[in-house]
């Protein structure tokens, strides 16, 4: 009976996303833009949840992976976009996103290695450091536009792309979590010493979590680049990483459904607060404090822990 349940979810989600995307002319552009933001943030939050929630590592460098993916993808479409006919553009975009994801995954591998020796606050500071190093590299590299960043990126991210890829992310993370991988992740999260005594290769699971998480952050970066059309190194500082961490924590660490809800709410909330623009970040900060004081287990506790 299990056959295909997950696949059907994935297929339906992609079809709906693409269909809505074709009908997107009917929607207000402003709302559509926010909807794309939501899709991108879901990818970021769900992929970080794999590292911070399920596997219990503490990464503060997600924006760095996002930057790697974003810059890689944008550079590729900028270089080759003009050379290819319009019909080939979606394929170029797909290839650019994939390349961004893969380069970010490579960065994830690099960051995953310290996670083998460090934990807790020390791992947090090292991942934060990696994120900052990545930012400094982009900031100083003329190839990537240095401090001005990359401009003139073609608009390629649509509602369909963002949400279809969000569905893929959720699917992949859910499938991994509901397999020997997921149990390995959670075993590492719960008790590394007991896990290794039970034959669980903790190194392998930690690195896998970092690589897969970074891959999707890279994809999200590519989508972001072709949505905002401008990439600046400042946009990927550690405040951005913290925003993603907050989504994961409010969603209830390790609960995919809750994390998706948190990503949606925390993307829309600042837009709702536009009327009181000057106070909105203050309210955002107070919200974080208030929630931690009253509901530290996360805003949402529905959805099986570990599952999707």
């Amino acid at each position: 009976m299990m056959r295909g349940k997950e696949q059907i979810f994935l297929l339906v989600a992609i079809v709906v996303a693409v269909a809505l995307s074709f009908a997107s002319g009917a929607f207000n552009r402003y709302y559509l833009g926010i909807a794309v933001d939501v899709g991108i943030n879901i990818i970021l939050a769900v992929s970080l949840n794999l590292i911070n929630g399920h596997t219990g590592q503490f990464s503060l460098g997600h924006a760095g992976f996002m930057a790697v993916g974003g810059y890689t993808a944008a550079k590729l479409t900028l270089l080759y976009g003009a050379l290819l006919p319009p019909a080939a553009q979606p394929f170029l975009f797909a290839a650019a996103l994939l390349a961004g994801g893969l380069v970010a995954a490579l960065a994830g591998l690099l960051v995953g290695v310290p996670s083998l020796r460090l934990r807790g606050d020390y791992l947090a500071i090292v991942t934060l450091g990696f994120g900052e190093i990545i930012r400094v590299i982009f900031q100083t590299s003329d190839f990537f536009g240095a401090a001005t960043g990359l401009t003139g990126i073609t608009k390629m991210t649509t509602f369909g792309w963002a949400w279809a890829l969000a569905a893929v992310t959720v699917y992949v993370v859910a499938c991994l979590v509901n397999s020997t991988y997921g149990r390995g992740f959670i075993a590492v999260h719960d008790d590394e010493i007991a896990a290794s005594a039970m034959g669980i290769n903790t190194v392998r699971y930690k690195v896998t979590a970092f690589v897969v998480g970074a891959f999707f952050a890279g994809i999200a970066g590519g989508l972001y680049a072709h949505h905002k059309l401008v990439l600046k190194p400042d946009g990927f500082d550690f405040v951005r990483s913290i925003e993603i961490v907050v989504m994961v924590i409010l969603g209830g660490m390790g609960r995919t459904a809750g994390v998706i809800c948190a990503a949606v709410i925390l993307t829309i909330l600042p837009e709702l607060l536009r009327g009181v623009a000057e106070y909105r970040m203050i309210i955002y900060a107070l919200l974080i404090i208030g929630l931690m004081l009253t509901r530290p287990q996360g805003l949402f506790t529905f959805g099986k822990k570990g599952g999707a």
């Binding site: 913290i242 106070y279 970040m281 203050i282 900060a285 107070l286 919200l287 404090i289 004081l293 530290p296």
Partner: peptide, 27 residues
């Protein structure tokens, strides 16, 4: 109030306090 809670909770609260002070200051 968070003394007995997981350290991660306190850490996020601290980030919240930091953002609060920074954005309040910018007002």
């Amino acid at each position: 109030p968070l003394r007995k809670r997981p350290r991660l909770t306190v850490l996020i609260t601290a980030i919240g306090v930091s953002l609060f002070l920074e954005f309040t200051g910018q007002h």
